[in-house]
Structures are given as structure tokens and as C-alpha cells.
Design a protein around this nucleic acid. Structure first.
Lengths: 135, 135
DNA sequence: TTGAATATGAGAAAGCTTCTCATTATTACA
DNA sequence: TGTAATAATGAGAAGCTTTCTCATATTCAA
């Protein structure tokens, strides 16, 4: 199934791409930095360069397999595209990310954009806060 | 009035701080990068270092005078705090920023956060799209 | 006016990300 | 299956944004 996705995107099926996709698919944390992925590759004994990780993630993003988020902190996080759109609640203490989706908000956004003459290409709603465990 | 704000924040009233505040107040574009501000200072003949611009903006942020946004692109933009909270519509072609505020969305956010056990510290809703002029 | 505290400028340095280029792997096709 | 053409990789250099360092300069309370 993965190799199909790569081929469809016009990307050759290579070991680095398979491994990176595998990490994104199997990680229980859905939002990973390039560095996170690189570290996991090293721990798994794979000799894959950090430059390759960034390159592959950028290609995955272009192919729609992955979404890049710019949460606070300057470092980008990558998330495997699992179909359903959602927004994020991020804990500013521990970094935990909770996903949510609210059709009322979605609809309001479409209305506001259209009233302002904008054609939506994307949107990002991120709520920052302190989670239960950190209080 | 500006000097009051600086003193209240425990910051000495210096020329760099006054000039940077002035640029933020008088610019018709409300969202400026540190580089933008630095360039305007140079054009105005002020010999203020880029490091000072960053330092001052960070202090302004801590004092609540300014808000730092992380729109797409990795570069932070700074906005003078003008009292009323609002969200942003950003044109991905020309960079134009339109501000909006919707109480329905705000209320929903509070509800979602509280249901997830989060105490909101901040939130950022940014809609990316193509504006009327760019189509 | 003077001293203690704070701010500044310049360049170095740090962090994240992209680029370069010689080497290696993949793939389509014979 | 072997081979040529094409694309991908690794390593380090380089680019950008942002922060740090430290000697010098400025502010402000008394």
C-alpha cells in the first residue's frame, strides 16, 4: 500500500522513503519534527542523512501524503495525512497535541473567507494551552 | 503615551525603542518582520542594529505591547497589540493580511478546550487563501 | 551631576532547513 | 536478466532567521 502511494506521487520506491513513511505510520505521536524522525532512524540502525529526511518530507508534503505545521517554536512538525481534516490543541508545557474538528467552526470560516473575497487554500486553527496533566 | 507604555513595562525609554514603536504604530501594514522594521530604520537614517530590533521586539512581546505570529514561511511577523483580539486571513500570493473576529468561533474554541481539559493560554486561527485581487 | 543599572551595536554563534555534487540505487526496456 | 537513463542519497557546506556575547554607551534616580 505504501509503495503505491509513492509511485502515484512519481517518487521511486527507495529504502529511505519506505522507512520514513513507516515511522510516520507507526508512531503513536502523530506530530514529528524532522529531527525526531532522524533520531528514530538512527536508533533503528538506518544510515539515512538528515538532509534526506528533510528532502523526503518536503516531497511527501508536495504529494499530499504529509502536512507540515508551524506550531510555536519555529521548528516545523510533520503529520501523516490520514484523510480527515482536523485542527490542533497544543500543550505549551509538555508539547502534547490533541486533534479536534468542529463543523460549526469550519462553516464559519468558509463564510468569513467568502465574505472577504478569499478563496481558501488552507487553514490552521491551533489553540495553545496547558493540559490537565501539566496543571 | 508611548513612553508611558515602556515605563510601565519596566523598560527604559530609549531611542531604538521609541523608533521601533513608532514604526509599528504608523505603518499601514500591521504585520511586519524584524527585517522589515530594520530596513525602515535604515531608510530613516537610524543606526540601529538588527540584534536590537529582535531584542526590543521580544521585550515588547513579553510586555504585551506586541504579538508575534508564525505564519507559513518560517519568518515571524510582529503586530502592535491594539486591544481587540482577532484572527487572520492571509493571501498566499501577495501576503496581504485581513483581520477578523467571530464570537461564534471564539465560544466554540473555549468549549472545545474545556472539554479536552485544557486551560487556554493563546490561540491562533489563520486562514490561508487567494484574495480577490490575486485571482 | 554622578553612579548604578540597563541598553546598545557588531559580530560571532546557534538552530533549522536547503543546497551541492560526487556516488549509488531504481526502473523501464531490450 | 543486464543495461542505460534517470532519479535519489549522504555528507558537508551554505543560507536564513534569530539569539548571544561583551565592550561601550545611555538612561535615570538621587
Amino acid at each position: 500500500m505504501e509503495t503505491q502511494d509513492l509511485k502515484k506521487a512519481g517518487l521511486k520506491v527507495t529504502l529511505p522513503r519506505m522507512k520514513i513513511l513507516e515511522i510516520l505510520e507507526t508512531s503513536n505521536v502523530h506530530h514529528l519534527t524532522a529531527e525526531d524522525i532522524y533520531r528514530q532512524l538512527l536508533e533503528a540502525g538506518e544510515e539515512i542523512g538528515l538532509a534526506t529526511v528533510y528532502r523526503v518530507l518536503t516531497q511527501f508534503e508536495a504529494a499530499g501524503l504529509v502536512t507540515r505545521h508551524h506550531f510555536e517554536g519555529g521548528q516545523a512538525v510533520f503529520e501523516l495525512e490520514r484523510g480527515a481534516h482536523h485542527d490542533h490543541l497544543v500543550c505549551v508545557k509538555c508539547g502534547k497535541v490533541v486533534e479536534f474538528m468542529d463543523e460549526t467552526i469550519e462553516a464559519k470560516q468558509r463564510q468569513i473567507s467568502s465574505e472577504a473575497g478569499f478563496e481558501i487554500t488552507d487553514h490552521a486553527l491551533t489553540i495553545y494551552g496547558i493540559c490537565r496533566d501539566c496543571r
